[in-house]
Structures are given as structure tokens and as C-alpha cells.
Amino acid sequence: MKTDIILSGVGGQGILSIAAVIGEAALKEGLYMKQSEVHGMSQRGGDVQSHLRLSDHPIASDLIPRGQADLIISLEPMESLRYLPYLKKEGWVVTNAQAYVNIPDYPGMESIRAELDKLIRKVVLDVENLAKEAGSARAANIVMLGAATPFLGIEYTRIEEGIRTVFRRKGEEVVALNLKALRAGFGAARQLTDGNQ
């Protein structure tokens, strides 16, 4: 088993929480894991990315080689495109549909949609709306994680355990809210990919 994941988004969107949950789940699963992340300057509204590698064999590099990522999980549509050179031929892109516009020259949404349409294996979801519908508006990142769960190579219940571990300190209410968000994302992705996997 080997899953190489690029996580991307904009500073502050919560990609590191996604990484933390997957990391905990992987640890419980007895998998090897390496996760490289960016701190410091890039957090100030700039693009952020994390390389997350899971395997049942020891992992050498902290960085994923180009053309080898199984999955790109992105909380922002343009940011999902930035890391395409890392994606392997049959890899999946799971991305939020809603743009995060904090720069003056952000491209038009039609052109972003056109680029996403070109991808063969993708899940494009409006995770902010799904999070609101699920009553967990602040857990859009966990909705995204739910949508990506079918591609991780880790059981859904393990990811739930990961959420319990990561959010335990913040109280039962926060845990319940995030579990709900996870389910909302998981369900939505399942609907989109039925018969397409």
C-alpha cells in the first residue's frame, strides 16, 4: 500500500488539520508516514502545500517526486491546478469549487472550471456550502477530507478515530461537528464518483 498526497490551499484554510487527522489515522493503521509542511511566511495569505506520504513500507523522501502523487486534495480550485506536475497519470484531484480571491489578478472562474473539466479523475465540490448544510460551517476543511477519504487507502472508521484524537482537546461538541462534516463530504464524493472509479 502506498498513497502519496499533495495537500494545497491558502494560508489559514486548514490544510494542516487535514494532514493531522490523516496522520493520526495512518499511525493507528500501523502505516509509515512522512508529512512535509510549510510554515512562516507562506501563512500570510499565500499559497500553502503539504506533501503527505503513507505506505506500509518505510518511506525515503519527505517530498513526493513529480508525476507520482496519487491524489491532490485542495481547499482552493486554482491551488489544485498549481501542483498538477506532481500528479501521476491516473491520479485523482479532489478540490473545493469555491475560489479564495485575495489577489487582484485571480483568473476568471470560467477558465478555472475549464481547466478542471479537462481532468479525467476529479471530485469538485463546494465544501463551504456542504459544511453550512451540515451545520458545521467552520469545518469546510473536514468536509474536504471526507470527500477525499475514498481515495486514501485508509478505512473511513480510522479517519473518524483520527478526528476524535485531533479534536478531543476542543471538546465533544467540536468532535461531533467534525464527524458530521466528514460524513457530508464522504457522501457527496460517493455520489459524484459512483460508477466512475
Binding site: R44, M78, R82, N102, D105, P107, E115
Partner: peptide, 9 residues
Amino acid sequence: IVVQRPPAL
């Protein structure tokens, strides 16, 4: 179409 997204205050 992908453009730079530099950090900002």
C-alpha cells in the same frame, strides 16, 4: 491561468 499568490499583511 495559474498565477502567483504571494503572502500579504
